[in-house]
Every structure is written in structure tokens, then in C-alpha cells.
Design a protein around this nucleic acid. Structure first.
Lengths: 152, 152
DNA sequence: ACTTAAATGTAGCCTTGGCTACATTTAACC
DNA sequence: GGTTAAATGTAGCCAAGGCTACATTTAAGT
């Protein structure tokens, strides 16, 4: 009630600008999150994350992957030694965990409202980076409520 | 059933790379969509869309807005004459319409699962660009079904 | 009408995240 | 062990999308 309802008393620009700014920020963190999530996956399954694997899975060339991984290292999320694989720091693992949980939640939500699996996975890949805590909490609540009456 | 379930027969990379590629493409079109949507809003309400207004609403400087608007012109979505406002082409109007409908649908969906209004608006601003036709159709269906039993 | 403020436009720089081309190192295979 | 293939790393280019600084044009105020 304090925002976005009264147009005569308050200009629309600031709140809208904030929203767009938020979306831009999310876009810039999306890449980092994708890389961390993928590296965590590779470490969990194969035991090691090599840059070519990362590049292949992301659909980019390996120099691009290396450059992005350099950013992860700058931000204290990953480490690596020349010609060795990539590893996640403690912070990297934490972020990966958070990102993965969020991804799963989004996919579950989409499936619950009737989106086919492949579309749900693909859309979640992009949408997950823009879901706020409020939305995640709501999604979790919605899914929990659904569990009790799975019909309809 | 034809994809993403059998890990022994098919490598995981291609489908995952496709998903990431899709998300990247969506990110690049997101900016265009935001601008077109906003310009359409300004034209509808104020009657004209000036570059400073666009910049203010988006929270960027005006040279940035102008550069982005140049991209819209390149892509045949908008037109403008020096020191005059910005206008949308037929294609621009069509895109604006599509984008706005999608935005509203997403917001409605978030509200329906219990997300507060301001968070729903902010999240939708980012998520809308990643929602496929399948997800939009599912959301519409879900909301229609909800209408018949608004309790719980 | 002239002056001044605001809006619009242009130029040039930075960072990010793509890419290709090339160098180097590791591993594999006679 | 030497040769070759693959993986890894580096260099340098490009486009997009931010920015500041400055030029120009329009509109307002007196």
C-alpha cells in the first residue's frame, strides 16, 4: 500500500528504475552463478572440473570459459593451478548450494503449474537468477500446500 | 521421455549447452524488449516518448538510452527524428503488445502463488524474458483454473 | 529578442563476454 | 624415448552496454 498504487502523489520513475537496475544486476551475476553451479555438478559427479568440460557444457569456446573462470577466481569463488582442474572455495560451494536449491525449486514450481519438463528446465535456467527471496519463499509455500492435495 | 532421462545412452552436454545458449539469447533480447515496452507505455500515457524520460525510467544515463534506441531503430522496431520523440514501428508495437501481455501474466502468476506485489513486479521484470510459450500457456491455464476455485 | 536552462546528440572510454588464432604443456601411442 | 594429439593457456579482436565530458539545439524566462 505504500508503493506503486498512488500515481498522483509519487512519480513512477524511481521505483521502476530500481526494478530495472535490479534486473540488470541479476543479469550480471547470472553468469557467475551458472559457472559455479556447473563446476559443482562436475566436481560432484566426475570428481574433477576441467575447463574444456565446462566450455562444452555451457556451449562456449574454452577461452571464453577460462576468462569467466578467471572472474570466479577474482571473486574468491574458485581456485585452479595451471593444467590442473578447477576447484571451488568455501564461498563457491555455498553459492553453488544456494543456486542449485533455487533452480530445483523453480523447476518444481513450473512442473506444478503444468509446464513440460524440458521447457521447465530451460526456462528455469534463465528465470532462477531473477527470483527474489520473497518469490522463493512463496514458491516453497505453494508447493508444500500442493503436497496435501495433489489432485487438481 | 525422449530427452534428459536416460544418461547412459546420451551425453548431457548438448542439451545443457542448448539451454544455456537459449538463456544467453534471452538476456540479449531482454534489453530490446524492456525499451520497447517502456516506450509503448510512454506513448500510451503521455503521448510522446522522449529519450530523457526513457533514460530516467530505466535508471540509465541518456547517452546509454540513445545508444540502445539506436539498436531498436537498426532492428526496425522504432523511428525518430533529431530532437523529436521516439516512435514505434508496426513491428515495435506488436512486440510491445506481446511483451506487456507476458509481463502481466507473469505478475499474475506470482501473485497467485503468494508473492507480494512489489516483489512480483520486480521479479517479473527479469523473469519474463525467459518464459517460453509452454510456460506462458501453462501459467494461463493455471490462472484460469484458479478463477473457478478462488479459495485456498 | 537575448540569455539561460534544459533537452538532445556526439565522442570517446571502460568492462564484459563472446570469438579466432596461436603457443605451450600434458598425455598417449607407437 | 620421440612423435603426435589433445588439453590448456595466452593474445588480440569485436560488439554490447554502461559511463563522463562536451557540443548543439530547442524551449523558457525576462
Amino acid at each position: 500500500m505504500t508503493d506503486g498504487t498512488d500515481e498522483s502523489e509519487m512519480p513512477a520513475e524511481p521505483t521502476q528504475a530500481l526494478r530495472f537496475g535490479q534486473a540488470r544486476l541479476a543479469r550480471s551475476t547470472a553468469l557467475v552463478e551458472d559457472y559455479v553451479e556447473l563446476i559443482a555438478d562436475l566436481l560432484a559427479s566426475g570428481g574433477e572440473a576441467r575447463s574444456t568440460d565446462v566450455a562444452k557444457r555451457l556451449g562456449v569456446t574454452h577461452p571464453t570459459a577460462i576468462k569467466s573462470i578467471a572472474r570466479l577466481k577474482r571473486e574468491g569463488l574458485a581456485t585452479s593451478k595451471p593444467y590442473r582442474g578447477i576447484f571451488l572455495t568455501e564461498a563457491g560451494h555455498e553459492l553453488a548450494h544456494k543456486v542449485r536449491a533455487r533452480h530445483r525449486l523453480l523447476v518444481e514450481l513450473l512442473l506444478a503449474i503444468g509446464v513440460p519438463l524440458e521447457a521447465a528446465e530451460a526456462d528455469a535456467e534463465g528465470m532462477e537468477h531473477h527470483a527474489s527471496e520473497a518469490t522463493l519463499a512463496a514458491a516453497a509455500g505453494f508447493l508444500a500446500a500442493r503436497k496435501h492435495r495433489p489432485d487438481e
